[in-house]
Design a protein around this nucleic acid. Structure first.
Lengths: 195, 195
DNA sequence: CTATTCACTTGTCAATCGAACAGGCAATAA
DNA sequence: TTATTGCCTGTTCGATTGACAAGTGAATAG
């Protein structure tokens, strides 16, 4: 009962940290704000995670655990699925994942400029394994195009969900709506891997 | 001579603010850091711009002045250019602009979650006029697809340049290289508006 | 030449930052 | 039951935050 409560509280803190950091950046959010979001005291963050930096790392771990879980099926598709359909499924799933977790791209953009130690760790620990799976499914497109395809794909999938308020105010289209998410998936799948 | 120096200093501060805010977010960067980047004292920021908020607004003004200047040709193409080629030129130029000014997308992503007052002002003052020009060139694609095309286009154009270190470390491809920029433009133009 | 304006620096303010610490209280162990 | 562990809160610290006021000195005006 103690251990369960401990884990529940830790996850509550990590989730709050992940969302807050994704929204405002590492230096843009205070540990007090994160604590308030998690409904705990600020001192508890120092207790469970020694420093704000370590909390960031725990948030990254949780983020990629969610991402890998969500993308597992399309990253390791059964051989019975045709390669073309594997690609289409991958793109579609990435759109749905980005819609459900816009914090992913936000978090990945945030680490870039701020701290090179955190950045290197994130790429080697979490991003590279994911990239390998991406290449495995997308691998028969020209190798020189792969990086372009990856970032085109990632940006095209997720940007609309990273700026939902802006998008709604600007175009009237609400990226939170299920119909819009499906339409974005359809649009992107047919654009990048037409049947 | 006084007035010229004044304007030069103000622009120096605004540029430093724009880049710093784009990198670390509004709350993620201090006025002292911005001042250091601009080689002026912190008190001078308060002197020229009353508050950090007002400085942010000046940075946004400068950002969109640069963006509109860079995109002017492709937003208002001569009628002699065929519609298909207009679209291709627009996409190509957006890639080159994103490569030269990755702070654009970063800045636009940063405003979203932080402050709704700044967000609304930014959309109505700067983004909507730009969106209208985009629609004018891209306008013959289905209206329901326009928002999807816009954010697909923006994300696909710019994300790779927003994470240059990550991209280089992950894929070995350096988005700062001219050859890579051209390849990304070729890739995206042919993807989104094939001849 | 003298007086004034004004871009700019320095010093200071309360508020807030991340981190550390002592203590309390409920769950566990004995 | 008693003793102990350990999750958690509240307080406090030196440092840093945005904003402000006083002071400096060179360019301008009369």
């Amino acid at each position: 009962m103690r251990a369960e409560q401990r884990e529940a509280t830790r996850e509550q803190i990590v989730t709050a940290a992940l969302l807050a950091i994704s929204e405002s950046g590492f230096n843009g959010v205070s540990t007090r704000t994160i604590a308030e979001r998690a409904n705990v005291s600020q001192g508890l963050l120092t207790y469970h995670f020694k420093s704000k930096d370590a909390l960031w790392r725990a948030a990254a771990d949780q983020l990629f655990a969610i991402a890998n879980d969500s993308m597992q099926e399309v990253f390791s598709p059964p051989a019975s699925v045709e390669p073309l359909q594997q690609k289409r499924n991958l793109i579609r799933q990435m759109v749905y994942f980005s819609a459900a977790h816009p914090e992913f791209i936000r978090f990945m953009l945030e680490h870039e400029k701020e701290n090179s130690d955190r950045s290197r760790w994130l790429v080697e620990t979490h991003l590279r394994p994911m990239y390998k799976k991406f290449v495995h499914v997308m691998g028969d497109i020209p190798e020189t195009d792969l990086p372009h395809a990856l970032y085109t794909f990632a940006g095209a999938s997720g940007l609309i969900f990273c700026a939902p308020n802006e998008c709604k105010q600007l175009t009237g289209v609400d990226p939170g709506s299920k119909a819009v998410i499906k339409r974005h998936a359809d649009y992107l799948v047919n654009l990048m891997v037409p049947e």
